[in-house]
Simulated scan of single mutants.
Amino acid sequence: MSMFKVFDISGSAVSAQSQRLNVVASNLANADTVAGPDGQVYKARNVVFKTVMMDTAGSAARGEADNPVMASAGVRVSDVTEDQTPGRKVLNPAHPLADKDGYVTYSNVNAVEEMVNMISSSRSYQNNIEVMNTAKSLLQKTLQMGQGV
C-alpha cells in the first residue's frame, strides 16, 4: 500500500467522525427540549458508518469488481437514523405544553450516552489526525534521505 493511501483512509475517517460530532452536538443541544404544539418532540439521532473501498486515486470505488489488491478501505456516513424510543414523560400540569393528563414529553436524548459518543468520536478524530501527521513526517524524512542531507 502506498503511503499516500494513508491520507485517503484517515481523511475519510476524519470526515465521518466530524459528521458524528455534529450529530452528537445537535443531540446534546436538544436534550431538554419538550414536545411542541403538534405533539412531536426531538428524537436522538445516530450515525451509521459504512466501509467503502477506495480506488487507486483515493476516491470511492464504483463497484466491488475493482482490483481488491490495489484498493484500500475507507469509511463514510451511510445514514443518520432517529432513535424511536419514546421520550421521557414528567408530571407537570402547570407547564403550558402539558398533555391532557398533565405530563410533559421531553426528548429521548440520553446526555450521558451522548457525552460518551462525543469523547469516542473526538478521540477517533484526533487519532486519525495523528496518523496523517506521522505519515507526513515519514514522507518528509524519506525525502530528506533522498537528498543526502
Rank of each mutant, 00 (worst) to 15 (best):
M1K: 04
F7A: 12
D8L: 01
G11L: 00
A13M: 03
V14Q: 09
Q17V: 03
S18L: 10
R20A: 07
R20L: 06
N22G: 13
A25N: 14
S26M: 05
N27Q: 01
A29G: 15
G39Y: 06
Q40P: 01
V41Y: 02
F49W: 04
K50L: 09
M54I: 00
D55C: 04
A57S: 11
G58N: 09
S59M: 08
S59R: 07
G63T: 13
G63V: 13
P68M: 06
P68K: 07
P68S: 07
V69P: 03
V69K: 10
A71N: 13
A71C: 12
A73R: 12
A73T: 02
G74L: 11
V75D: 02
R76K: 11
R76H: 01
S78N: 02
D79E: 14
V80T: 14
T81Y: 00
T81M: 11
E82N: 01
T85E: 13
P86D: 10
G87W: 02
R88N: 06
K89W: 00
V90A: 09
N92M: 06
P93N: 08
P96T: 04
L97C: 09
D99W: 10
D99C: 01
D101A: 15
G102Q: 01
Y103T: 03
T105H: 06
T105G: 12
Y106P: 03
S107E: 02
A111I: 14
A111S: 14
E114Y: 11
E114R: 07
M115H: 07
N117S: 11
N127W: 01
E130N: 07
E130M: 12
T134Q: 09
L138Q: 15
L139Q: 10
L143W: 00
Q144D: 15
Q144L: 14
Q144N: 13
